[in-house]
Design a protein around this nucleic acid. Structure first.
Lengths: 191, 191
DNA sequence: TCTCCTTAGAGACGCAGTGTCTCTTATGAG
DNA sequence: CTCATAAGAGACACTGCGTCTCTAAGGAGA
């Protein structure tokens, strides 16, 4: 019998977990189902991850690759923010809400990382827009800076269907842009 | 042995569930623990609710009473919106995030009700503000109307500590009011 | 090439909780 | 007083978690 080891085996395990996740959802994913799919024993899983939540998080990271690092740069503030929102949508909608909620319930320490990172991304985008002269100042209240991504996250978590682009545009055109431009309500409409 | 029945028994069951919930949290709440606390058997629970999620939801409704119905009317738009946010905070912070996430994971059909109701509440508040002449028009984009409550819900779900009043004020003063007043960024600061 | 240490693969195990089933018996309705 | 209903109590099968044990594969090093 040929035996998988080390990184090769680990990849197989994470792929198996990912497959279970997308095919059956988080609630159906068990350590035993993952082990069975990977044709190995539970101990091999527990040797690497302490519980289901850690395994799933690892599988998530493994599949979706390095978490961002690439801040959109489309040349316009509107395009950049929409780009960020679309990134968030792409990352999560393939998972489905049950996985997200399940993970939140079992791994309460997952989010702060992603959370603060998004603020940094938005700050960069706004700073560049200010340098381009597109907006008057990059000195924007944190509540405004985080509003679009937070609202987007809210949509992802509460809507039971994928977030539509019209919803994303509403967040940008009706909420964010009026706030950073200093004019709202009847200002710029969507092109 | 005196036997509880009907509504009297049901109240005991729901109180027991609520006690388990607040004392031990959602993860620790089991049908057996609730039954034991109520000094009865599991069958009595299963005769009324199909599973843990339904029991908890019932306990929640029973304890917090009828869900809203009372729209704040403080005389100012700012006060009204802050009142709504505070209501949301009061309702949920006593539960803790683990209960909320656990419920979301197990009862995916809980939210839409509350969800649409909040939109109606906000619409009422804005309409009254327009009638008072506090703002120019009640014709506000839905994205703006739902922004404060959605952001508040976001805070409740993601922050692992109770939402502070300064956070709530930031949502109202930095995001909502500038949007409905049509002026932002450097406009009205908090009193 | 041989040895040895790590660890994969396989399965048994105890534990906890779910949801079902059964039985006895209190109690309100008639 | 009778009787249908449902409470109280517990046994039950089942599932999944996380631990433990054992055998044997296959690299690393001599």
């Amino acid at each position: 019998m040929e035996r998988r080891r080390g990184a090769e085996l680990e990849a197989v395990l994470l792929d198996a977990a990912w497959a279970e996740l997308t095919e059956s959802g988080y609630a159906q994913l068990t350590m035993e189902s993952v082990a069975a799919r990977a044709q190995t024993g539970k101990q091999v899983l527990y040797r690497r991850w302490r519980n289901r939540a850690e395994l799933v998080i690892a599988a998530l990271r493994h599949h979706t690759g390095s978490i961002v690092g690439n801040v959109p740069d489309t040349g316009s503030l509107r395009g950049d923010v929409l780009g960020v929102l679309r990134q968030m949508a792409d990352r999560f909608t393939q998972l489905g809400p049950d996985t997200i909620h399940g993970l939140m319930a079992e791994a309460p320490d997952l989010d702060p990382e992603v959370y603060s990172r998004m603020t940094g991304v938005m700050a960069t985008i706004v700073k560049r827009a200010a340098e381009r002269g597109e907006i008057a100042t990059a000195d924007v209240p944190v509540a405004v800076l985080t509003a679009p991504t937070n609202l987007m996250r809210h949509e992802i978590f509460f809507s039971h269907s994928p977030v539509s682009s019209s919803t994303m545009m509403a967040l940008v055109d009706d909420v964010f842009l009026p706030l950073v431009r200093g004019t709202s309500a009847g200002g710029v409409r969507r092109p």
